[in-house]
Simulated assay, not measured.
Amino acid sequence: MTRKEEAYEYIRGEIVHNQFRPNEVISENQITDKLNMSRTPVREALKQLEADGLIEMRGRENVVAPLTVDAVQEVYELRSLLETFALKKTINLIPIVKLNELEEAFERAAAKEDWDEYLQVDTDFHELITHIAGHPRLAQFLSILKAQTARTRHVSSYNPNRMSRSLEEHKEIIKWLRQRNLDEAEKALAYHLQRVYDSVRSYLNYLND
Rank of each mutant, 00 (worst) to 15 (best):
M1A: 14
E5G: 02
Y8K: 09
Y10V: 13
Y10I: 12
R12S: 15
R12V: 13
N18C: 00
F20K: 01
E24Q: 15
S27Q: 05
E28R: 07
Q30Y: 00
Q30A: 11
L35T: 07
T40V: 01
V42R: 02
L46H: 03
G53D: 04
L54E: 09
I55H: 04
R60D: 13
R60Y: 05
N62C: 09
V64G: 06
V64T: 05
A71G: 12
Q73D: 13
E77Q: 14
E77H: 08
E77P: 04
L78D: 14
L78S: 13
F85L: 13
K88Q: 08
K88V: 02
K88E: 10
I94R: 02
I94D: 03
L99C: 08
L99Q: 05
L102I: 15
E103I: 11
E104M: 07
E107M: 14
R108C: 09
D114N: 13
Y118K: 04
Q120V: 14
E127D: 15
L128Y: 03
I129C: 02
T130S: 13
A133C: 01
G134A: 05
G134P: 07
H135E: 14
R137L: 15
A139T: 12
A139W: 04
L142W: 01
Q148S: 07
A150T: 05
T152M: 06
S156Q: 01
S157E: 00
S157D: 00
M163N: 01
M163T: 02
S166F: 08
E172A: 12
I173N: 06
K175V: 03
L182R: 02
D183N: 10
A185F: 09
E186D: 01
H192R: 11
L193R: 04
R195C: 13
S199C: 12
V200F: 12
S202D: 15
